[in-house]
Simulated scan of single mutants.
Amino acid sequence: MFINEETLKLEYQVESKEKGLKVIDVIASHMHISSRLIRKCKSNHNILLNQKKTSVNQIVSKGDIITLMLDHDENTFEPNPIEIDIAFENADMMAINKPPFLVVHPTKGHPEGTLANAISYYQYRSNQNFKTRFINRLDRDTSGIVLIAKSAYAQQFISEQMQKDEVDKIYYAVVEGVVSEDKGTINAPIERAEDGDILRVVRPDGLPSITHYEVAERFNGYSLLKVKLETGRTHQIRVHLAHIGHGIVGDHLYGKCSDWIDRQALHCFEMSFRKPRGNERIVVNASLPEDIRKLIEVLRNL
């Protein structure tokens, strides 16, 4: 079991069931370290057994301490004084409630003033220094939870869960029209409309894409949906809801603009995953932002 909470140091105490295994077996199968990271630690002599450098073929005993020292990768983003809403943080990762209209990381069009720059500023103020590794991303106009890893180990651990669809992702969306069925599943492959195009469409040769939804509330001509992603394609919720005739309110790309909100009414409300250094499941929530709450009030009073 893991016995420490330090960003760039992993310490694991060998349990009875692991007695007689090689160091490499414990690291790979019980600490869940990727082969790439093992090779890197091995080549840099960053694997210790009971505080001494060791061969990865050394046999372990109950109570032995295996230590991996992770490389320190410098933060490369300029700090910008932007406040962030931290929903969860430990030595390995952060979960941030991203507001709408904030770009996740610098681009040609947005070289600064991004979430990455805000995290850099937070690091400066909290006396931390880690490379910001985004595990998931949200569109500029979508609000809600963004996960950030503080080390290559944490990124690999949670990204593998993402790839296996083991991370539960729940969104809220306000959509056009009254959705008649209380619950439903949209199973429709998604692909780019054209090569290099940002627009995605449902088409037979697309990637498998599955979205589950249930109606949280119905209004006069609109619906509030609770949406759960089974897969995570670019623009998946926006494409799927438009595909079934219930485009997201304010979505100018896949629907139409709204007089009541100046972005798509889509919010990543909850994410659930196994945290690094153990199998404990973490559930992170981010409350609905003010603009979506106001939109819902308007629709209730139509």
Rank of each mutant, 00 (worst) to 15 (best):
Y122D: 01
Y122M: 05
Y122K: 08
Q123G: 06
Q123I: 07
Q123T: 09
Y124Q: 11
Y124T: 14
Y124R: 12
R125H: 10
S126A: 14
S126F: 12
S126V: 13
S126N: 14
S126Y: 08
N127M: 06
Q128I: 05
Q128P: 01
Q128S: 04
Q128C: 02
Q128A: 12
N129D: 15
N129T: 10
N129S: 11
N129I: 14
F130Q: 09
F130I: 08
F130D: 06
K131H: 12
K131T: 15
K131W: 13
T132I: 15
R133D: 02
R133L: 07
F134E: 03
F134V: 00
F134L: 07
I135G: 03
I135L: 04
N136R: 11
R137G: 06
R137Y: 07
R137I: 12
L138P: 03
L138M: 02
L138W: 02
D139C: 03
D139T: 03
D139G: 05
R140F: 11
R140L: 14
R140C: 11
T142L: 07
T142I: 05
T142W: 03
S143I: 09
S143V: 12
S143K: 08
I145A: 02
V146R: 06
V146W: 07
L147V: 11
L147D: 11
I148C: 06
I148S: 05
A149G: 13
A149Q: 04
K150G: 04
K150I: 02
K150T: 02
S151M: 00
S151W: 01
S151I: 00
S151G: 01
S151H: 00
A152K: 15
A152H: 13
Y153A: 04
Y153H: 02
Q155A: 13
Q155P: 05
Q155R: 05
Q155N: 13
Q156L: 06
F157Y: 12
S159E: 15
S159W: 08
E160R: 06
Q161H: 04
Q161I: 04
Q161D: 03
M162D: 10
M162V: 13
M162K: 10
Q163Y: 07
Q163S: 12
Q163I: 10
Q163C: 11
K164A: 05
K164R: 10
D165F: 03
E166H: 14
E166V: 04
D168A: 15
K169H: 00
K169W: 01
I170G: 00
I170R: 00
Y171F: 05
Y171D: 09
Y171Q: 10
Y171I: 12
Y171A: 10
Y172H: 09
Y172I: 08
Y172F: 10
